[in-house]
Amino acid sequence: MATISARKGPDENDKMVVIGYQAIVRKKGHPSQTKTFRAKRDAERWARQIESEMERGVFVQRTESEQTTVNNLLDRYSREVLPTLKGGYREQSRIKALQNGLGAYSLAALNSSMIAKYRDKRLSTISEKTGRMVGPQTVKHELGLLQRALKMAVMEWGIALPGGIPTATVKKPGLPPARNRRLVDDEEERLLAACAEARNAWLRPVVIFAIETAMRAGEIVETWKLNKKTGKREIVSIGLQWSEVNLKKRTAHLPETKNGNARTVPLSSRAVAVLEALPRNLDGRVFGVTYEGIHQSYVRACRRASITGLTFHDLRHEGISRLAEQRLTILELQAISGHKTMQMLLKYTHLRAEDLALKLK
């Protein structure tokens, strides 16, 4: 049975008056539960709920989840988990957004309705970074981060959530159609001709290599980012190294990738020819240039070639689609592209209907 007792304290005249009610629930097989309320009816309601949960075998210890805010949770996640993740630095802006919107709530109070309201508010917010509306992909990443942090709290840190993980029942924002930009007609010839005219001699071999291998930009060339906290540029990826290339076996090994898994990429005859024609850099890099060093050159080359809407990352789409057209299996495509899920791989694979038609009888 629950015990409800009045709690007294001095008023402004130092007279002892009732300032609240303490409810204590004791039941064999469960730790004693205590909580204080302003009103007696609230104490009684809480005690009845706890007793009912204990009797039905669904009681969850709330103390730690009531004392831990979303701010506390995300600070700990940032401190203990992000440093262990490849590309964990990308999560910092998402953590900041979540803390601004939900940080003050305790984990015990957090529910799906609050998270849904956060989702809707974010989708109607203008980003300080871009000056445009926050996109559904951004919000989806933020909700995914919150869900991972809550799972970590339950599974690793021993913080029980009375109502379960609330993000699990919140509908994720609908995403716009995936990009399906590919090189069409004579665009590849025009692009490579424009790249050959560029002052940056590395541009043309990098573009060809990107198309032939379907590798990410950071897997091909050295990539840097600006650390907003320190104001200094930091290296994100070192790019492809000669020590990881085997021209005899026609492979390029990538020990570190965006998703954290190493993989070995097979090289086509055209990719091998590109590598064989390159000078050897003393620093070990295959391509002696950074992504920042070729990005503007690539944009200008597209402009000279009268090609619009073709980003450097679209070359990865092109490469994966060409591999798929060579009738490689899904497992073979995943091994080359490095995608962990079929869903992500399919977003990058865009087969031309006219090419498929040639295979039909």
Results as ranks from 00 to 15, higher is better:
R250Q: 00
R263T: 03
R270E: 14
S243N: 14
P255G: 09
T251G: 11
L247W: 03
T257V: 07
R263V: 02
Y298W: 09
V245R: 03
Y291V: 05
T308E: 14
R316M: 06
T257S: 12
S269C: 14
T311C: 13
A301Q: 05
L315S: 06
K249I: 02
H313L: 00
V286S: 05
E244N: 13
R280D: 08
E292L: 14
S321F: 00
Q296K: 15
T257E: 10
S297F: 03
T251P: 03
T251N: 11
R304S: 09
R316E: 01
H313Q: 01
K249M: 11
S237W: 10
N246L: 04
W242F: 10
E244T: 13
K258R: 12
V274I: 12
V245Q: 10
R303P: 07
W242K: 11
Y298S: 00
V299H: 04
F287Q: 01
V286W: 02
S306E: 15
H253G: 09
L278C: 11
H295A: 14
A271D: 03
V236E: 05
V289T: 11
R285Q: 06
T308N: 13
Q241K: 13
Q241M: 13
N261P: 12
R250I: 01
V289K: 09
S306K: 15
A301L: 02
V286K: 04
R322I: 00
N261Y: 14
G239S: 03
T311W: 07
K249S: 09
T311Y: 08
E318K: 00
I238V: 15
R285Y: 05
C302V: 06
E244K: 12
R285C: 10
P255C: 07
R280Q: 08
L323G: 06
H253P: 01
A301T: 07
T311M: 12
A252H: 06
S321D: 02
F287G: 11
A301D: 10
G293A: 12
L278W: 07
R304P: 09
Q296D: 15
T257N: 08
Q241E: 12
K248I: 10
Y291T: 07
S268R: 00
S297T: 00
G309V: 13
Q241R: 13
A277L: 08
A252Q: 08
G293H: 02
R303Q: 13
L278M: 12
R263D: 00
A252N: 03
L315E: 10
L278K: 06
L254W: 04
V289D: 01
G239A: 06
L315C: 03
L278G: 07
Y291P: 02
D283T: 04
N281W: 12
I294F: 10
A273V: 05
S268K: 05
Y298D: 06
S237Q: 02
V265S: 04
G309A: 14
Q241W: 08
V289Q: 04
A271C: 04
G284T: 04
K249N: 10
E244D: 15
F312A: 05
H295R: 15
S306N: 15
T290P: 01
A305S: 07
L310P: 10
V274G: 08
S237D: 10
E318P: 09
N281F: 13
H295C: 14
R322N: 01
F312D: 01
G319Y: 05
K258N: 12
P255E: 00
K258P: 03
R300M: 12
L278F: 01
H253K: 11
R300D: 12
S306P: 08
Y298F: 03
Y298P: 04
R270H: 14
P279T: 08
I320V: 11
